[in-house]
Write a protein that binds this DNA or RNA. Structure first.
Lengths: 211, 211, 211, 211
DNA sequence: GATGAATGAGCGTTCATTCAT
DNA sequence: CATGAATGAACGCTCATTCAT
């Protein structure tokens, strides 16, 4: 797909920016955001300390940029995949799959996104109002669409359902990150979706189990 | 029930320990763990800086103690409530209710437990191996019990189901924490349980939706 | 004179404060304010780096404190000497003498007061509005008193005369500071006063020389 | 007088040099020498950062060049004016007038010459040994000439008298610089000269006042 | 000559922790 | 036990200067 946005050649500036972002991911994942030193990021990116500040406003901005950059690309990819699909059920499946695949493929990145970017309420708000909000909004749209079509139960608030779904996926990734023998993250996709779709109680008992 | 753990009078030492823990919760919630200064915790607890170190090993241990102390009491309470119940469905309901009630009652505490204690992988591991693990284990027991009795579907790995349930509740608390107009956290109990029990897809479509 | 303010024993805190101020004078004079490093001041005062900040708000405040502390004592001394005198001419003589003596006695201090504290307009304003203003005001009072009594010519604005006198003394100190073989600063007292009192033009030519 | 130094057309290089010097004056006056950044000087001069170093050896040399350039022209002008005059009294009058006029006309320049160039002993020595020394030497010559002719009192060391005169003028300029409502600097010329010529004590009291 | 992206040395300040009283 | 003054290691960031183009 020559000429496509994601394939076009990077300018030297963009290239160096990417190098720094990648270095930040590695160093932040290895040492933790707070313990990580800017000078180590610079070393990992093979640039001088001062160069970091030609591309980013500071340490915090660097962390935020890791998050936003990655999520931006992820959301783009998601949007493209969504276009091909009609069934909200399928959309949800794809979304969960991509989520697990993306993070499962890059443990350092997952670490930064799941843990280091959540070190403070202030930072979490920043994320929620940025790309993360966009992502949740995408998920929310799918839920609502499913409810409109009758594929998803309509007696649960869509926003809450969105949170529950995200929370389930998110926690799974967290456990995978904390595990000593992680294995393949995507292996959980099937059971996870089953839980999300069908819950934990078999249909025949639904009456009695209703909250 | 004289002499019971929770009702007996606190020794002066225990009392001061509690004062420091409470001060830590307030200060960590207000300023964030990393920005918070030990001297401010001391001030809030109305003790000298050095006194903190007579009760805790350091800043990190103080944070850990907040977590463990609170969870210990929560788990005790949970165990007592569980004893009265037989039905795993009821147990799960109670567990979720207590979870939401406990955190909904004390926003500063919720903030510290949900956000500040998760600032690094190292710390999260510490939690997982401590009281948090115990809590998850309790939840896991309920799930397995439900599966054994047939109340919960047996075709999903219990550990994964546990994670999904915990993740759903946890994320809900997070959203509540980040919200500007929080409202009452317990209001979500019903819908949340519905999601956990029945999933998002109505029974009649379960075949097609299976992951 | 036991019990007098200046002779009373210093508290340990005051003593350490003085030690730091003295160290600052030496280091600022030796390296210049901007090149001087706080860690060197600390070393010279034989305290830890952080201790400086228990006594002063920062580097700039330290410099300001050197100035204000010294001038405060100088002004006190001046006020006491003034009390014994009636003749403004005598007062001016004493003032100039004390000025030259105080600085001539301590070259490092003179260096800091004359040069390092004047590194920026902002800082000079700070000084002018502080103790330096008080000092100039004292000088101004003497000039006005002399004019009222007829000892000083009344056809020159007192403020301007004050500036001229101060400028003359100040510049003399500056030249002494920049000189490689300084000699005794007080040796200039007589000629300086002659210039201030009588100007450069002999009386018989005053008509023609008037500006 | 075509071809004269001050009137001939500037080469492009000289022109750019002047632009940089002017930019330096503005930026140094606005931000202070130490806070000022070379990149801001470059911006103000509308050249690239690196270009500054094609015309000056560095930041310090730039400041020194501002001083020397301005003083060189000032001294040239002074020498020309002196040529027309015989009376040392007149020469002194003209010198003071030109001094006040030159600085009164350009407050940014005055700021740099009076304050920013005096930030350290090392720099002040540099000035004293350069153009400033030349200027003081010029003043000294006038004083000595006046003493030889009997117009100025001979019982005061010429060097000291020079310092006193310079100090008086210099301090006046300083006060004007620090004032919030400066007004016209040249208004002080008359009274200032009166002080310099006649001192502060009326002739009839000279005996008693002699230092 | 002119550019401006890259360099990297340098430092004021903070704050968790200690320990003499 | 309690205190709080003192410690000193640690680091993000700036900016004068350089040099490949």
């Amino acid at each position: 797909m020559p000429g496509s946005d994601s394939a076009r050649k990077l300018t030297p500036r963009e290239f160096k920016r990417m190098r720094i972002l990648r270095a930040a991911i590695e160093v932040f994942a290895r040492d933790g955001y707070f313990s990580a030193r800017m000078t180590d990021v610079a070393k990992a990116a093979d640039v001088a300390d001062g160069t970091l500040y030609l591309y980013f406003d500071g340490k915090e901005h660097l962390l935020l940029s890791v998050f936003d950059d990655v999520l931006e690309r992820f959301i783009d990819q998601l949007r493209q995949e969504m276009r091909r699909l009609d069934d909200p059920v399928d959309k949800l499946k794809v979304m969960v799959r991509l989520h697990l695949e993306s993070l499962g493929r890059d443990r350092a990145l997952a670490h930064v996104l799941q843990i280091e970017t959540r070190h403070s309420r202030k930072f979490m708000r920043l994320l929620s109002r940025g790309k993360l909000g966009e992502y949740l909004s995408l998920l929310n749209d799918i839920v609502k669409e499913g409810q409109d079509l009758g594929s998803f139960r309509g007696d649960v608030n869509a926003g809450l359902a969105t949170n529950v779904i995200f929370g389930a996926v998110d926690e799974l990734v967290n456990r995978w990150l904390l595990s000593d023998e992680p294995g393949d993250l995507t292996q959980y996709q099937g059971p996870l979706l089953k839980m999300i779709f069908q819950g934990i109680v078999p249909c025949e008992f639904h009456e009695g189990a209703a909250g």
